[in-house]
Amino acid sequence: MTDSPIDDSLTHGCLEDLSPEARLLLALARPRLEPAQQQRIFRFLTANGQDLDWGLLVDQACRHGVLPLIGRNLLTYRLVHSADGRSLAPYRWIYAYAYEGNRRRNHALADEYAKVIRGLNAGGLDYAIRKGPVLTEGVYGDVGLRRMGDLDVLLSRDSLPEFTSVVEGLGYRQGHLSGNAELVVPFDRRTQMVWKVSLANSTLPYLKPAQRDDVEVFVLDPCFNVFQPGSGAVVDPAEILARAVDAVLFGEASRRLDAVDQFIDVCVQLHVEATTLMYIEIGKDLTILKFLDLVQLLNRLSGEQLETLVSRVRRYGCVDSVRYALHHTGQVFPDGVPPELTAEFGPADPDLLETYGVLDGRPDRWEQGFADRLFNPRRSRTPKARSTVPGPRAVV
């Protein structure tokens, strides 16, 4: 970096003291850029492109799960070159490869997960697909924009034996990947017992070695409830499954959560992951992609669905999770959350916003502010306590 002044055209409205790289990242992290947004970014890059730490930008984009998205935007909107052909953003090929590589990777995952969905349908299981795959295919509208990971499946606990039979027939095993990535090694007994007793809303993941350069492993993540034990939120999973809607995923007839339950699910997961020691330790507690997901889902809710959302959140008893998610999403994307929706659930309690480790039984408070944590890659070293949950980390 030089000592030259940084143009302030991308000043963020809610988060203070952001680096220019962070401001640029937030400006680019949108599925679509309106002409006015394109012009602001172009002016910013024209004034400051040579002074930015592009290595830091790429690192943060990877950490936050948005490198394919910002890569597509830099290229599609012609933001990497000035009008006279001067480079404004170095290493154009990185952004092209990130987007194209992610698109191809997601197609590989889709081909595999389509087989799983066909198997679940043939087995007559009652299920609903959650989170990533639904967002990648049904919300973003471009399979290369959002990085997809595991296949999250909600089903009743009684259906687990049938689920296991179906996926084992497709080559999946419950365990972790071996060192050479060619075998799935069963979890030890302690890990199995801890997950069975303490994490009763889910079970350990099912893995299948992919043996591909772009996909190391296929992961199935079944769960039995959208709420964690001890969270205070209560809903009969059968109610959510009964309300699931038909969808086409990976070219197959499937089922997904209804729009309101899907939004609540994303809010709850955002809150859990932002405040749980296991996610903090692996640096997946705060990512821009999670806040962007919530904005995209919120934009798709009708007025009637928003009214249903308010009543359903109160009935489920998950007001704190939704309040936490909406507050922080509004901090990251100030224009993404209607003020009236935030006001509907009342002002967020500072204790709620600054406390982590509650579900771990080790509550503590952050000493850094939200903006500092959002872009601090060393925040995982801050908590005094460590997660005692054994088992997978890379596939969480």
Rank of each mutant, 00 (worst) to 15 (best):
P5V: 05
I6G: 04
S9R: 14
L10C: 08
T11N: 12
D17F: 03
E21C: 12
R23P: 10
L24W: 06
E34W: 11
A36Q: 14
Q37G: 15
I41M: 07
I41L: 02
F44P: 13
N48H: 01
D53L: 07
C62Q: 15
G65K: 01
P68M: 12
P68G: 10
I70H: 07
G71M: 10
T76Q: 15
H81K: 13
Y95A: 13
N102Q: 07
N102P: 14
R103Y: 08
H107T: 14
A114K: 00
L120Y: 05
A122M: 03
D126R: 14
A128N: 01
K131E: 03
P133E: 12
G149R: 02
D150Y: 05
L155D: 09
L160S: 10
P161V: 03
V167Y: 02
V167A: 10
G169T: 03
Y172K: 07
G175S: 08
S178Q: 05
N180F: 13
A181P: 08
A181S: 14
E182H: 11
V184I: 05
S202M: 14
Q211H: 14
F218A: 01
A233M: 00
A238H: 11
V245Y: 02
D246Y: 00
S254E: 00
D258Q: 04
V266T: 13
V266M: 12
L270A: 12
M278C: 11
M278F: 11
Y279V: 09
I280D: 04
I280C: 07
L286G: 04
L286T: 08
L286C: 08
L294D: 01
L297C: 12
T308P: 09
V313R: 02
Y316I: 09
H327Q: 09
P334M: 09
D335S: 13
A348D: 03
D349I: 04
V358E: 11
R362Q: 15
D364F: 09
E367V: 15
F375E: 02
R379C: 03
S380C: 12
R386H: 12
S387C: 13
V389D: 11
R393D: 12
R393Y: 11
A394C: 12
